[in-house]
Design a protein around this nucleic acid. Structure first.
Lengths: 203, 203, 203, 203
DNA sequence: TATGAATGAGAATTCATTCAT
DNA sequence: CATGAATGAATTCTCATTCAT
C-alpha cells in the first residue's frame, strides 16, 4: 500500500523533473541559455518557479542536466541499431553518425541546444559536460582507429582530425538547417557528408 | 579652420568607436555576450557609458558590429596573399582557408566571439550577420566549383557539402583549441584538415 | 499497554522538542536568528522540517522558547549554590552573578543567542521574553534592596541603577568575549566587574 | 557656471545619500537590520530601489555606513562641549558620557541601531565597525587612565573593566528606555549611572 | 501524529536604456 | 556631441508555511 503510494509520488516527481528539463531544452534551443529565464522555464513546464529548486540546485545545475538527459536518449536510440548492424567498423561508424542526425531531426530543440549552445559555448568547459562530449567523441575516434587497423581507412589518417571533420560537418550542417528553418532533409545531408568524408578517409 | 576641427572630431569619433568595438570583442570573447554588460565595455574602452549610445543604437547593434569589423580585417589579410598565390583554384582555396586559421591564431579574442558566441547564437540568424557569413561561405563554394570545372575535384562532389566540411572542421577545431586553452598550433591543425579534405575531394 | 505506548510517545515527543530547541540555540548563536532557516534547524535536529510545526506554532514561537529553556537551566544551576551560600545578601548577589557567568562560559551558544540575538532584538519587547528577563532582573533588585536595608550598601543607591550596571556590565563583557573568540576567562572578568561595582555600592 | 551646476549636483547626491542613510537608521532601529528590506528603505527615503546601488555597493555596505555616519555626528556634538569643559579628566569623562546619552535622546533611532543591532550583533565583528567602536571605547579608556594617573581614580582600577561598566550601563539603560517606549528622562538615568560608577572608581 | 512535496510572497541585485544639462 | 545620474523591469534565489496522505 505505502509502497504503491511511494511509487506514485516518485513517478510524479520524475514527471515534473522531466517536464522541467523538456521545457528547458526547448527554450534554451529557441532563445539561448542566457536569454531563457527560470520564470519562463517554469511557466512552460507548468510548474511554480520555486519548485524548480526542488529538483535542481540552481540554474547552472539545470543547464548541465540538459545534455546528460539527451545523450542518454541518443545512446538508447543508437545502441539497438548498432547491434543489428554487424561488426564492420565503417558500417558502425555510419550507423552512429546517421542515428545522430536522425535524433536531431526528431529533436530539433536539442540539436539547437547542443550545437548552438552547449557544445561551442563556455559551458563545454564545464567538466560535467566535457565528460559527456568527450565520451561521445571517443566513440568516433575508436571506430576510426579500428577502421584504420583493419585496412579500411588509410594508415596515415589522423583519427582526431577525422573525428573533427565528422563532428564539425554535423555541427555546421545542423546549424544551417536550423537557421534556415529546417526546410530540407537533414538526414540526407548527413548521408552526403558521410559519403564524402568516408571517401576521403579510405585506404 | 572649422573644417580642421571637424576632421579632428571625426577622427576622435572613429577612435572611440574603435575602442568600443575592441573592448566589446575582448570581453565578449572572455565571458560571453550576455554576461558582458555595457558598463563593463564602457569602462574597458575608457568611454562614458552613455557615450556608447552615441555610436550604437543599442547593445544588439554593437554586437552585430563586431563580426563586420573582423570580417573586413580578415579580407584585408587574405586578399594580398591570394594575389601572390597564382590562379590555381586549389591553391587559392588553401590560401583562403589557412589565412583564416592564421587570423584566428592571431586574434583568439575574435575567434572566441565568432565561433563560440556569434555564430552559434541566435545572432547568426540576424540578416546582417548572415550576409557576412554567407558571403564568406560563397567564396569557398565558388572556388570549389572552379576546381570541379577544371577537373581537379571530382564531378559528383556537392560544393555545398564540401564547403560545410571546410567550415565545420574549422569551427570544431577552433572551438576545441579555444576551450583547451590554445595549447597547440592551430594553423598546423588547419593544414591537416585541409589536406584530408582536399584528398577526399580530388578527382 | 496503551498507557505504556502513550508514555513512550510522549517521551519521544519531549525528546524531539528538546532536539529542536538545542539545534535552534546552536544555530541562532552561530549565525543569528534571521539567518537561520527552519530547514537548517530541522536538519541539524534530525527531524523532518514539517514536524517542527507539530511542536511550535511558527518560527517566532520557537525563537521565544529558546530563552525560556535556558533560563530554567540557569535557575537550576544557581539554586543549589544559593542554598549552600548562606544568607548574606552580598554573598547571594555574588553567587547569582557569577553563576550566570559560569553558565555562559559553559553554554556560549546560549550566551550568543541571548546577548547577541534575543536581548538586543525586538524580541526583547515580546511579553514572553520580557517576563523572563524582568523576573531575572528582579532577583537582583531584591537582593540589592536587602543589602541596602541591612546597611551593607549605601542608602542612596538606586537599586535599579545598580541592577542595570550589573546586567549591562555582564552583557558588555560577554558580547566582547564572544566577539573576540572567547579567548580569555569570562568568569574572571565577571569577578572583576562584581568587585568594582560592589566597591562602588558599599555604604 | 559649470562649477555651480556641479556643486548643485553634488549637493543633490549628498542629500540623497543622506536620505538613504537616515531611512536606514530609522528602519534598522525599528525592525532590525535583517528584517528591513532595501525596498522599504528606498520607499522611506523616497528614492527608487535601484538608486540605492548608486550610492552603496550592496546592503552590507549601507549597513556599515550607518554607524560611521552617526559616530561622526556624535563626535561633532561632543567635541565643542569638551573644549569648553576644561581639562579635568573626570569632567571630560562626564561630558563625553552624558553627551552620548543626549545624542541618543535626540536620535533614538540611532540608539536602537547601535545598542540593539550593530554593537551586540555579529556586525560588530566587521572590521569597519569594530574600528569605530574600538576608537570610541578607547576614548573612555584613555580618560580613565588619565584619571588614575592623576590620582582621581584608585590605582587598582582596571580601565577596561571600568570602560565596560560605562558602556554596558549605557547600553542596558538605553535598551530598557527604548523597550519601554522612552517614557522617562534618559539623560537623567545617565547621570545616575555616572555618579554611581564614578563613586566606585574613586581613589 | 508524522511527513514529503509544494508554493507564494518576497529579497537582493543587475543592467540596458533614458534624460537633463 | 558628451555625460553623470537615474531608473524600471527583470532575474535568480530563499524560506516560512501549508497540505494531502
Amino acid at each position: 500500500m505505502a509502497g504503491a503510494t511511494l511509487k506514485l509520488k516518485q513517478q510524479r516527481s520524475r514527471d515534473r523533473r522531466q517536464q522541467i528539463i523538456s521545457a528547458a531544452t526547448k527554450l534554451f534551443g529557441r532563445k539561448g541559455i542566457d536569454r531563457t529565464s527560470l520564470t519562463e522555464i517554469a511557466s512552460t513546464a507548468n510548474v511554480p518557479l520555486s519548485s524548480i529548486y526542488d529538483y535542481f540546485e540552481d540554474k547552472q545545475a539545470l543547464v548541465l542536466e540538459v545534455p546528460e538527459e539527451n545523450f542518454t536518449a541518443l545512446y538508447e536510440k543508437t545502441e539497438p541499431l548498432l547491434l543489428k548492424g554487424g561488426t564492420d567498423p565503417l558500417e558502425q561508424l555510419r550507423i552512429t553518425y546517421l542515428s545522430n542526425f536522425e535524433y536531431i531531426s526528431e529533436n530539433p530543440g536539442w540539436g539547437r541546444v547542443f550545437f548552438l549552445e552547449i557544445w561551442p559555448s563556455i559551458a563545454a568547459a564545464e567538466p560535467k559536460i566535457r565528460r559527456s562530449v568527450d565520451k561521445y567523441g571517443l566513440r568516433y575516434v575508436s571506430l576510426i582507429k579500428q577502421a584504420i587497423r583493419v585496412g579500411r581507412y588509410r594508415k596515415n589518417l589522423d583519427p582526431y582530425v577525422a573525428m573533427s571533420l565528422l563532428m564539425g560537418g554535423m555541427c555546421q550542417v545542423t546549424a544551417v538547417w536550423l537557421l534556415y528553418g529546417r526546410k530540407y532533409d537533414l538526414v540526407g545531408k548527413g548521408k552526403s557528408l558521410f559519403a564524402t568524408l568516408n571517401e576521403g578517409f579510405k585506404a
